Amino acid sequence: MTSSPKIKVLVVDDHPMVRSGLIMILDSEPGLEPIGEAKTGVEAIAAILQDFPNAHITIFTSYDGDENIYQGLQTGAKGYLLKTAERAELLGAIRTVHARQNYVSTSVGAKLASRMNSPQLSKREIEVLKLLAKGNGTQAISAALYVSEGTVKFHITNILHKLDVSDRTQAVVAAYQRGIVDI
Protein backbone atom coordinates (compact mmCIF):
# COMPACT_ATOMS: atom_id res chain seq x y z
CA MET A 1 0.00 0.00 0.00
CA THR A 2 1.57 3.28 -1.07
CA SER A 3 0.98 6.38 0.94
CA SER A 4 0.26 9.67 -0.75
CA PRO A 5 3.04 12.26 -0.67
CA LYS A 6 3.07 14.58 2.30
CA ILE A 7 1.94 18.17 2.02
CA LYS A 8 5.08 20.25 2.39
CA VAL A 9 4.61 23.38 4.51
CA LEU A 10 6.86 26.43 4.83
CA VAL A 11 6.06 28.27 8.08
CA VAL A 12 6.42 32.06 7.93
CA ASP A 13 5.95 34.22 11.03
CA ASP A 14 7.90 37.07 12.57
CA HIS A 15 7.70 35.49 16.04
CA PRO A 16 10.13 32.60 16.67
CA MET A 17 7.89 30.97 19.30
CA VAL A 18 4.90 30.99 16.96
CA ARG A 19 7.00 29.42 14.20
CA SER A 20 8.24 26.73 16.60
CA GLY A 21 4.72 25.98 17.81
CA LEU A 22 3.33 25.73 14.29
CA ILE A 23 6.18 23.46 13.22
CA MET A 24 5.49 21.17 16.20
CA ILE A 25 1.80 21.00 15.31
CA LEU A 26 2.49 20.30 11.65
CA ASP A 27 5.19 17.75 12.44
CA SER A 28 2.78 15.75 14.60
CA GLU A 29 0.07 15.70 11.96
CA PRO A 30 -0.03 12.75 9.51
CA GLY A 31 0.33 13.84 5.90
CA LEU A 32 1.97 17.18 6.65
CA GLU A 33 5.68 17.94 6.58
CA PRO A 34 7.17 21.26 7.72
CA ILE A 35 10.06 21.93 5.34
CA GLY A 36 11.36 25.23 6.64
CA GLU A 37 10.67 28.54 8.26
CA ALA A 38 11.04 32.22 7.48
CA LYS A 39 10.46 35.52 9.26
CA THR A 40 8.61 37.73 6.76
CA GLY A 41 5.19 37.38 5.22
CA VAL A 42 3.08 38.92 2.49
CA GLU A 43 5.88 40.14 0.21
CA ALA A 44 7.08 36.55 0.22
CA ILE A 45 3.85 35.38 -1.45
CA ALA A 46 4.67 37.01 -4.78
CA ALA A 47 8.28 35.81 -4.64
CA ILE A 48 7.25 32.23 -3.82
CA LEU A 49 4.65 32.16 -6.58
CA GLN A 50 7.13 33.56 -9.08
CA ASP A 51 9.58 30.72 -8.38
CA PHE A 52 6.94 28.09 -7.60
CA PRO A 53 3.75 28.94 -9.52
CA ASN A 54 2.01 25.77 -8.29
CA ALA A 55 2.52 26.63 -4.61
CA HIS A 56 -0.63 26.65 -2.49
CA ILE A 57 -0.45 29.47 0.03
CA THR A 58 -2.55 29.83 3.17
CA ILE A 59 -2.21 32.96 5.27
CA PHE A 60 -2.56 32.38 9.03
CA THR A 61 -2.30 35.79 10.64
CA SER A 62 -3.48 38.23 13.25
CA TYR A 63 -4.02 40.91 10.57
CA ASP A 64 -7.78 41.09 10.16
CA GLY A 65 -8.23 44.40 8.37
CA ASP A 66 -10.24 44.06 5.18
CA GLU A 67 -7.43 45.61 3.13
CA ASN A 68 -4.89 43.13 4.59
CA ILE A 69 -7.17 40.26 3.65
CA TYR A 70 -7.82 41.62 0.18
CA GLN A 71 -4.13 42.27 -0.53
CA GLY A 72 -3.11 38.81 0.69
CA LEU A 73 -5.63 37.11 -1.57
CA GLN A 74 -4.91 39.48 -4.48
CA THR A 75 -1.22 38.62 -4.21
CA GLY A 76 -1.99 34.95 -4.73
CA ALA A 77 -2.80 33.28 -1.42
CA LYS A 78 -5.67 30.81 -1.70
CA GLY A 79 -6.47 30.61 2.00
CA TYR A 80 -6.80 33.16 4.78
CA LEU A 81 -7.61 32.57 8.41
CA LEU A 82 -6.88 34.30 11.67
CA LYS A 83 -4.66 33.15 14.52
CA THR A 84 -7.78 32.90 16.67
CA ALA A 85 -8.67 29.74 14.69
CA GLU A 86 -8.58 26.33 16.32
CA ARG A 87 -5.93 23.76 15.40
CA ALA A 88 -8.43 21.68 13.41
CA GLU A 89 -9.46 24.68 11.32
CA LEU A 90 -5.84 25.51 10.47
CA LEU A 91 -5.08 21.93 9.46
CA GLY A 92 -8.30 21.75 7.46
CA ALA A 93 -7.48 25.02 5.69
CA ILE A 94 -4.02 23.72 4.72
CA ARG A 95 -5.53 20.55 3.29
CA THR A 96 -8.32 22.45 1.51
CA VAL A 97 -5.88 24.85 -0.17
CA HIS A 98 -3.56 21.96 -1.06
CA ALA A 99 -6.55 20.34 -2.82
CA ARG A 100 -6.69 23.47 -5.03
CA GLN A 101 -9.72 24.96 -3.32
CA ASN A 102 -9.94 28.37 -1.72
CA TYR A 103 -10.43 28.70 2.02
CA VAL A 104 -11.44 31.76 4.01
CA SER A 105 -12.67 31.55 7.56
CA THR A 106 -16.15 32.81 8.35
CA SER A 107 -14.90 35.99 10.03
CA VAL A 108 -12.55 36.72 7.12
CA GLY A 109 -15.36 36.13 4.63
CA ALA A 110 -17.57 38.60 6.50
CA LYS A 111 -14.85 41.27 6.31
CA LEU A 112 -14.36 40.64 2.59
CA ALA A 113 -18.10 40.91 1.98
CA SER A 114 -18.17 44.18 3.90
CA ARG A 115 -15.27 45.50 1.82
CA MET A 116 -17.01 44.54 -1.41
CA ASN A 117 -20.09 46.51 -0.39
CA SER A 118 -18.25 49.68 0.60
CA PRO A 119 -16.89 52.31 -1.80
CA GLN A 120 -13.24 51.74 -2.68
CA LEU A 121 -10.61 54.41 -2.17
CA SER A 122 -8.68 55.53 -5.24
CA LYS A 123 -4.89 55.30 -5.34
CA ARG A 124 -4.67 59.07 -4.81
CA GLU A 125 -7.06 58.94 -1.85
CA ILE A 126 -4.89 56.23 -0.28
CA GLU A 127 -1.82 58.43 -0.81
CA VAL A 128 -3.59 61.34 0.90
CA LEU A 129 -4.74 59.06 3.73
CA LYS A 130 -1.21 57.75 4.31
CA LEU A 131 0.10 61.30 4.52
CA LEU A 132 -2.72 62.18 6.94
CA ALA A 133 -1.74 59.18 9.05
CA LYS A 134 1.80 60.56 9.27
CA GLY A 135 0.38 63.76 10.77
CA ASN A 136 0.54 65.94 7.68
CA GLY A 137 -1.91 68.80 7.21
CA THR A 138 -3.51 70.01 4.01
CA GLN A 139 -0.61 72.28 3.05
CA ALA A 140 2.04 69.59 3.56
CA ILE A 141 0.00 67.02 1.62
CA SER A 142 -0.50 69.56 -1.17
CA ALA A 143 3.26 70.10 -1.41
CA ALA A 144 4.11 66.40 -1.20
CA LEU A 145 1.68 65.43 -3.98
CA TYR A 146 2.18 68.54 -6.14
CA VAL A 147 -1.53 69.38 -6.13
CA SER A 148 -3.52 72.36 -4.89
CA GLU A 149 -4.83 72.54 -1.34
CA GLY A 150 -8.33 72.53 -2.83
CA THR A 151 -7.59 69.18 -4.50
CA VAL A 152 -6.35 67.77 -1.18
CA LYS A 153 -9.54 68.97 0.54
CA PHE A 154 -11.59 67.37 -2.24
CA HIS A 155 -9.81 64.03 -1.69
CA ILE A 156 -10.25 64.28 2.09
CA THR A 157 -13.98 64.88 1.65
CA ASN A 158 -14.18 61.76 -0.53
CA ILE A 159 -12.17 59.75 2.01
CA LEU A 160 -14.47 60.79 4.87
CA HIS A 161 -17.51 59.81 2.82
CA LYS A 162 -16.10 56.46 1.64
CA LEU A 163 -14.91 55.48 5.13
CA ASP A 164 -18.17 56.72 6.65
CA VAL A 165 -16.43 58.91 9.23
CA SER A 166 -16.83 62.55 10.20
CA ASP A 167 -13.27 63.83 10.60
CA ARG A 168 -9.62 63.25 9.68
CA THR A 169 -8.76 61.53 12.96
CA GLN A 170 -11.56 59.01 12.52
CA ALA A 171 -10.41 58.46 8.93
CA VAL A 172 -6.89 57.60 10.09
CA VAL A 173 -8.23 55.27 12.80
CA ALA A 174 -10.50 53.54 10.27
CA ALA A 175 -7.58 53.21 7.85
CA TYR A 176 -5.44 51.53 10.53
CA GLN A 177 -8.27 49.19 11.51
CA ARG A 178 -8.92 48.18 7.93
CA GLY A 179 -5.23 47.71 7.15
CA ILE A 180 -5.12 50.49 4.56
CA VAL A 181 -2.20 52.15 6.38
CA ASP A 182 0.40 50.63 8.67
CA ILE A 183 1.79 51.97 11.90
Rank of each mutant, 00 (worst) to 15 (best):
T2I: 02
S3V: 09
I7C: 07
K8W: 02
V9T: 00
V12L: 15
D13E: 01
D14P: 15
H15P: 05
M17R: 11
V18A: 12
V18H: 13
L22G: 00
L22E: 11
I23L: 06
M24T: 05
D27R: 09
S28P: 09
S28E: 15
S28K: 14
E29Y: 10
P30K: 10
P30A: 15
G31Y: 04
L32G: 07
E33G: 01
P34M: 09
P34C: 12
I35S: 07
K39E: 14
T40I: 15
G41C: 04
V42M: 12
I45D: 13
I45A: 03
I45S: 14
A47D: 07
F52V: 05
P53Q: 09
A55W: 02
A55S: 05
A55I: 02
H56A: 12
H56T: 00
T58H: 08
F60D: 03
T61I: 13
D64L: 02
D66C: 07
E67I: 07
N68C: 02
I69R: 00
I69H: 14
G72W: 04
L73Q: 10
Q74V: 06
Q74L: 01
Q74N: 00
G76H: 04
A77L: 11
K78I: 01
K78D: 13
G79M: 02
G79H: 05
Y80S: 01
Y80K: 03
Y80E: 00
L81K: 04
L82I: 15
K83C: 03
K83Y: 13
T84V: 01
E86A: 14
R87K: 06
A88Q: 08
A88L: 05
E89W: 03
G92P: 03
A93E: 01
I94R: 04
I94F: 03
I94M: 14
V97K: 00
R100Q: 14
R100K: 13
Q101V: 08
V104S: 11
S105P: 00
S105M: 09
S105W: 06
S105K: 04
T106S: 13
S107K: 04
V108K: 12
V108C: 04
G109H: 14
L112G: 09
S114R: 09
S114H: 10
R115W: 05
S118L: 15
S118T: 10
P119D: 15
Q120C: 05
L121G: 14
S122F: 03
S122C: 08
K123V: 14
R124N: 03
R124V: 03
E125A: 01
E125F: 01
E125N: 11
V128D: 01
L129R: 00
L129K: 02
L129W: 03
K130L: 07
K130C: 04
L132I: 09
L132Q: 08
A133M: 00
G137S: 11
G137E: 15
T138V: 15
T138M: 05
I141D: 01
A144K: 03
Y146C: 00
V147E: 04
S148M: 02
G150A: 06
G150M: 11
V152T: 10
F154G: 05
N158T: 11
L160F: 10
L160P: 11
H161D: 11
L163Y: 08
S166V: 14
D167V: 06
T169W: 07
T169D: 09
T169M: 12
T169V: 05
Q170W: 02
Q170F: 06
Q170H: 09
V172N: 06
A175C: 08
R178S: 07
G179P: 07
V181A: 02
